[in-house]
């Protein structure tokens, strides 16, 4: 059976080389950098195929997420799986960060 990532040969839309060009945002670059660092020989915390396994496990949701959000989900789940942090730690951190970003975005 085809996984959600297995797109080769399926019908799809036109490619617009101008419209589909994009300068990576700083946020995307941070995710890209994190992934590279976690893969590097110093850490070896993950490999490309592990990251893909996580992304492909999204099933049909795979297509709902933009590219770097999929990478981010893969990193966050892999680090949980490898015991780098716990779900509770991640949930608490997210709560604290969310509050900070909301304040920042509302300009206070």
């Amino acid at each position: 059976m085809r996984g959600p990532q297995d797109l080769g040969g399926l019908p799809a839309g036109l490619v617009d080389p101008e419209l589909h060009e994009h300068i990576p945002t700083h946020w995307e670059k941070r995710i890209d950098a994190m992934m590279t660092l976690l893969f590097d020989p110093k850490r070896r915390l993950a490999r490309v195929d592990e990251s893909r396994r996580m992304q492909e496990a999204l099933g049909e949701d795979y297509h709902k997420y933009p590219y770097y959000e999929r990478w981010l989900l893969a990193i966050s789940w892999l680090m949980l799986e490898k015991g780098v942090y716990t779900q509770t730690e991640l949930d608490e951190k997210k709560k604290e960060v969310r509050k900070r970003i909301e304040e920042e975005r509302s300009g206070s």
């Binding site: 300068i23 945002t25 946020w27 951190k93 970003i101």
Partner: peptide, 22 residues
């Protein structure tokens, strides 16, 4: 060229939380 566009708040929150934990 700097592109400082921000993602949806859920995505920025998760990225920041994971990065800070690491």
């Amino acid at each position: 060229i700097q592109n400082d566009d921000r993602p949806p708040i859920e995505a920025e929150t998760l990225e920041t939380a994971v990065r800070e934990l690491l």
